[in-house]
Write a protein that binds this DNA or RNA. Structure first.
Length: 110
DNA sequence: AAGGTGACCGGCC
DNA sequence: TGGCCGGCCACCT
């Protein structure tokens, strides 16, 4: 499952890899960039498999509220927060401060 | 082949 | 902001 499948996953990874340093985005934004704003859950599902992929900054992907929902899927309990803070993103109680400020909208690409 | 699952989103209170 | 509910769609068993 660690092979570059040409399904939805690769698309999500492609967007995730485009997230600039110190920036974050939401699942819905990625889904929207893929032309499927209603499939936000699929983005999360793809991230679930991102463990098999490399260069996929899933820690820069949070839900619309700026909450680190996927934190539990990372190693340890605060790895995701550590990575974000390391990039200059302030995270408190699994929540990003000034989420809108660090928010980055992926380019629309089909 | 059919059903269950999920790191979500949007609307409403 | 927070909680509840319905919808949505690809992946897995």
């Amino acid at each position: 499952m660690a092979e570059p499948t040409d399904n939805f996953f690769s698309r999500v990874y492609a967007i995730a890899q485009q997230i600039p340093y110190g920036k974050v985005t939401s699942y819905g934004a990625i889904a929207k960039a893929l032309g499927a704003a209603r499939s936000a859950r699929m983005v999360g599902w793809a991230m679930n498999a991102c463990h098999d992929m490399d260069e996929v900054p899933a820690h820069r992907v949070v839900n619309r509220k700026g909450l680190l929902t996927g934190k539990h899927h990372f190693e340890g309990t605060n790895l995701m927060q550590q990575l974000l803070e390391s990039e200059g993103v302030v995270v408190v109680d699994n929540q990003i401060i000034d989420f809108e400020k660090h928010f980055w909208e992926p380019e629309i690409q089909f």
